[in-house]
Structures are given as C-alpha cells and as structure tokens.
Design a protein around this nucleic acid. Structure first.
Lengths: 171, 171
DNA sequence: TTCTATTTCGACCAAACGGACGAAATTAGA
DNA sequence: TCTAATTTCGTCCGTTTGGTCGAAATAGAA
C-alpha cells in the first residue's frame, strides 16, 4: 500500500537514537520538539511512532537495558582477561546508561523497583555474564566490585589510581 | 532594621529541603513554582534567595555532597564493624544523592568532571573515610566495593543476596 | 492512472515555564 | 511612633511545553 517503512524497526531505531539524547539532557530537559529535531523529523511524525513522551522514554530505556543475550559470554582467555573484557564492555556507555536508568527509576519506591521487569532483566543479564566467568558464588561480589569501579571512574572524571589487584578484578 | 532572618542560614535550609525535591523529580521535572509550594513560600520569595533555578540547584548539590568532615570517622569496633557502619551511613540516602549527582554531572565532559571542585571534594571525603578504616592501600578497592554494593541494592529494589564475606566488607 | 493506507508535516491550543517587577507586609533601631 | 531595610507576595510577560488535528505527501496495489 503506502510507504515502505517497517514501523517497528523504524521506531526501535528512533528509540535507540533518542536514548542518547535523553541520557544527555535528562527526561525533563528533553522536549519532544528538540528530540524530533535531533532525530531529523517533525514532532508530529515522532508522535506517530510514540503516543506520548513517556512511551518514547520507556522505549528508550528498553533499548538501553541489556537483554538476556546482550552481553556475549566470551569464553577465551584467563578469568582476569575475561573480567577485564566484560568490565570494558560495561564501561563503554556506563555513564550514559546509568543517567538514563536513574531517570527511569526516579520517584519509584524500592518495592516498585523490585517488581520492575526491565530492571530485573537487565540486572540478571549482568549477573549472568559475571557468573559465567567467576561462578555463582563470587558473582554478586565481583559484579559489585566492577560497578563500583566504573562508578568511581565516572565520578572522578576519568581514570582512578590503579588498585593493587585485590582479587583479579581490577586492571 | 527589618526581619530577623539570617539570610545565609535560611537559604541553606531551603536548599537542603529543596535537594530532596530535586532528587525525586529531576532537574527538568522540578519547577520553581512547585518547589516553592513544597517549601511553603511564594515563588518570588524563593527567587529572593536564589537568583535562578540553576543557582538553587547548585546550592542543593553543595548541600548534599559530603564535605571534609561530613563523614565522622568512628574509631570504635573492629574494621568490619566500622566498615559496616560507614556503609550504612553512605547507604542512608544513597539513591537520592546519586540521582542528584547524576543530574549535576549531566552533559559535563569527563574533563569537566575531573576539574569540578565539589565533586572531587565529595570523593575525597569518601576516600578519606574509607582509608581511615582500611588504610590507603586498600581504600580505593574497598570504596569501589561499597559503592557497587549500594548500587546493586538500589537497582535490585532492596536487599540483595548476602555475599559470602569476600574480604570483610559485605555483611 | 487511480485508489488507498500510511507517513510526514505545519498550525494550533491550553497549560506551564523561568524570570521580572512593584507593591505590601514585617520589624529592628531612632 | 515613625522610618527604613528586608522579606514576602501577586501579577504580568514572552517563551516553551506536551499533545491534537486536518491536510499534504508518499508509494504499493488495482
């Protein structure tokens, strides 16, 4: 019939590109006009794909949060090397993703967060990736270590002083 | 002459109470009208203490970020106990403070963050508190561990499964 | 070509925004 | 009590907001 556009694929692509804008400007700091301009279409066209700003934002978070198979479990190298690789992969867009996630969780109670599907799915993806390397027993502690290091690196504005290899996590 | 109000003290008190509102609604989601209503005064009165929304927000972040002596270094108990106490103190308003800090750092480059005074001061306060307990050598790694655990607790929506005491940090 | 379903757009709306301003209220010192 | 500095407030302004709507453009199917 009309245009040749795959609606779902196109909206997912828009959401992926919009996520970067949201994480840079925050939910409240992002207007539908500005984001449409950034995406290269009109505001009305954007509303054609997402009925509301909230819906677009939710689509963005789903695009950013890692799914089950988003973190490929590379099986090569030593445990230290594999952890280092995972850490670098997580650190890629750590700040941007965290900014988006904090926006996403804002105002939610702990109980609501605990029942949030997307959030739990993303966490289990991280846990699974770590557990595949160090095993279930140490996974929670090692994941905490990695997240804490990434956090400190971001809050410090770049690199932090290297820690004297506590248990093979840091580099 | 006129009113008996200590201008600085009053504005600091307003900023402290406004910080909670900012962290719950985000910078863009917070309007001067709403925050004034939440604080129990008129918008104009709020503008009397803070020339702009940005100025109010900056005052809020300064109120939230720990200063040099904000984290009292309790010297009683074992290292594990003291770490646990520090962790609980940090975890008190962890989510709210992080939400505010991510808003504060939003859009800043890594270089800008590295040169941000308030941020570096807050980090050194945390580092100092940890170093006072475990020593300089392990401080960076232990701080990362604590921050990561607090992060995971928040993102999980409450408690996480207890880790089998890796090196005395977790409880 | 013509039809028709989809995509894109500009124009519009009421509400809310950050901020400016002068008047009203308040109160310590004369 | 009167004065004057400060705090508080209501009101106004231009701009931007999220969202709606009908028309125009597009392109596969007839």
């Amino acid at each position: 019939m009309p245009k040749i556009i795959d609606h779902d694929a196109h909206s997912q692509d828009l959401a992926r590109r919009a996520a970067a804008y949201f994480s840079q400007h925050g939910y409240g700091g992002t207007s539908m006009r500005k984001i449409a301009q950034h995406l290269g279409l009109s505001k009305s066209a954007l509303y054609h794909y997402f009925p509301t700003k909230e819906a677009l934002f939710l689509a963005c978070t789903r695009q950013v949060m890692p799914g089950e198979d988003a973190l490929p479990q590379n099986a090569t190298g030593s445990e230290t090397d594999r952890l280092q690789a995972l850490k670098e992969m997580m650190g890629q867009d750590f700040a941007a993703e965290m900014a988006l996630i904090f926006d996403y969780l804002r105002g939610k109670s702990q109980a609501e967060i605990a029942q949030d599907e997307a959030m739990q799915l993303a966490l289990s993806a991280y846990r699974g990736a770590v557990a595949a390397i160090v095993g279930e027993t140490r996974s929670e502690q090692v994941l905490a270590q990695i997240m804490g290091e990434l956090m400190l690196v971001y809050l410090s504005g770049g690199e932090t002083q290297k820690t004297p290899q506590p248990h093979g996590v840091t580099g």
